[in-house]
Design a protein around this nucleic acid. Sequence first.
DNA 1: GATATGAGATTTTTT
DNA 2: ATCTCATATC
Length: 727
Amino acid sequence: MDKDKYKKLLNPKQYEAVTQAPGPLLIFAGAGSGKTRALTYRIAYLIENYGVNPRNILAVTFTNKAAGEMKERLQQILETNFLSLTVSTFHSFGARILRENHELVAYRKNFSIYSEEESNVVIKNIIKEKNLDSGDINPKGVKYVIGRAKDDMLDIQAFASQAQSPRMRDIAIIYTEYQKRLRELNAFDFDDLIYWPVYIFDKHDNVREFYRSRYQHLLVDEFQDTNHSQYRLIKHLSNERKSVTVVGDDDQSIYGWRGADITNIMNFEKDFPNTRVVKLEQNYRSTQTILTAASNVIANNRGRKVKELWTSLGEGEKLRRLECSDEESEAFFITDHVTHLRKEEGLRFSDFAILYRTNAQSRALEEGFRTSGIPYVIVGGTRFYERMEIKDLLAYLRVLVNPDDNVATLRIINVPKRGIGDVTIERIAKYSQLNNINVLEGCFHAVEDKIEGVSSAKIKRFIDLIKKLEGIKRRGEPLPTLMEKIIKFSKYEEVLLQENTPESEARLDNIKELVAGTASFEHRYPGATAEQFLEEVSLLTDIDRWDPNSDAITLMTLHSAKGLEFPVVFITGLEEGLFPLIRSGQISKEELEEERRLMYVGMTRAKRYLYLTNCRFRRHYTGSFFHQQSRFLAEIPADTLTESTDPQMFIKKPKLPPREGRYGYEEERKGSFAIGADVLHQKYGAGVVLSVEGQGENEILIVSFPRHGKKRLMTKFAKLTLIKGKK
DNA sequence: GATATGAGATTTTTT
DNA sequence: ATCTCATATC
């Protein structure tokens, strides 16, 4: 492949980025500017023009999907073998370093990787045992603080010494114990997968040098999302040559809450002198109208690197705006437009994405799609590998792989029920802790009648099961076979079959899917072990499980949508308080800017049509029901917007009788009528209050009258009398 | 030891 | 509104 080929395949800026000599390179890649393309061709160029050996290249991404796409593209463009090239996510790369160097942090090779849920179990136990259960200490909050500490590479001493408040001192105690327990359990949490490799590189020059000479050329995707520890990892690996290519977009930094440090991208040039900077500003995705609208929104943020996205794709259609009365009409509006647009434009269901700020919003939308018979898939929410039956069965696998994993052992010791009660389990756990053995060994002791008050018969059944399964694993049976035997011998399937409810049916389906999952894994990696499978599923993201080819509409959070594109995008729930999300009545400038970047990310997912919806009224388990429009809507230039359709026709007819007395309907709105109240008007007669706009003097009621349809009435003039319902 | 019942929290985004 | 967890009861 010669230089001309690159010139033909890339635009001038991309070409400039791709053909830089090895050395620090920072690519500001605006949304849709061909970032993956630039990265993959850069790799190809390093190999073909600088004779770089593929095994000396490491490319890091955040999701398996991104890594997979890069590998696929490389396979297409590279003539040389690329198999020795490493394309990995940060976390799986970290896991690999730890598998290869586990003894340096006093772990064993067969360690488990704990999800948030499992980490929380450990923390919860610590809180209970140490009696730290006060008002401001809860497992999730503690886990969050510890996680951020690990992102910042704070060890337990450093953390404790800077703990000022009583709460932080308590957390320091928990942090210390948590790390100790994780080691006993032979388990890492997600943050450890970066923390410990950096620790190893800090302490062991020889190990660091080994990886440095192995990975002489680094490429990092989504650099704006890296946290401090990830940045340290990159810096550790970069040698004198500093062949580090980072690609990112400060405007798309949306993981600050997870420790992502936007200053990493801002300070890169300082940390790596002589960095070449290239900006990719030509967008190949969206219409000019969409780009103009998005640029105007993001322009409200301060301290960003200025970029000017442009496209040659033409003006396109205006953005379509719709204010809905509530979530139901929002869902209805969307389904209606999907149906219509699909017909008119010959689009597939998979061309549509519905985006929202919080997962909880998917419910109402889902309901709408179900009733209108539109196929849909939800990314995220309750994830497959987090479903109870899947977690149970994976726990069996984990016990077989890592017998020290007490969290897994305790999860399955009585699942399915084999008559081992809480008291017995508690006694075994206590005994094991006192004798410094894992719970599984504790069970062996129980069988030998060594534990007081524990009858051995039922424990023996459990132990026999584990022994049998261990035997199967040791024989080296293929992974799918092992999984099937677990399901069979544990009687997990049998119990569900007996249950025979729609619920159990669904669980059986999931179990089948799990077996199919192991089979496909085995197919991809012949001879795959349970260890490898567990690692893969532990590090899978929501988006990794998403199949973009199935013909269904995709529902997902704005966060999940990053990196994707769709011909038609709906951004829903554009309400002040929900998006931007404001939790405690207050939002800091930094938080608001991150919300705005999220809006920018959402808008720039759209190729041709961008719909923006908000609800005036939204139900929530707490209470704030009436919402103003999101401030982001006001930041979109009026001439890029159009009111798409008369919203009235999408508003559902009110249900009669009004849902009086139902939870949450009686909002304290002084002087007005409750939604659903029956009222009497002098001219129009009896009607139902649909919604309320404005407040006090300017309050307007939307009332539906059987003969006269919907009317907007100012409360202060309308002289309405209450018939039924509440004020 | 298993099940039924009620209190209580929950929902921001995720590797 | 729904799920989880603790306590009461069989």
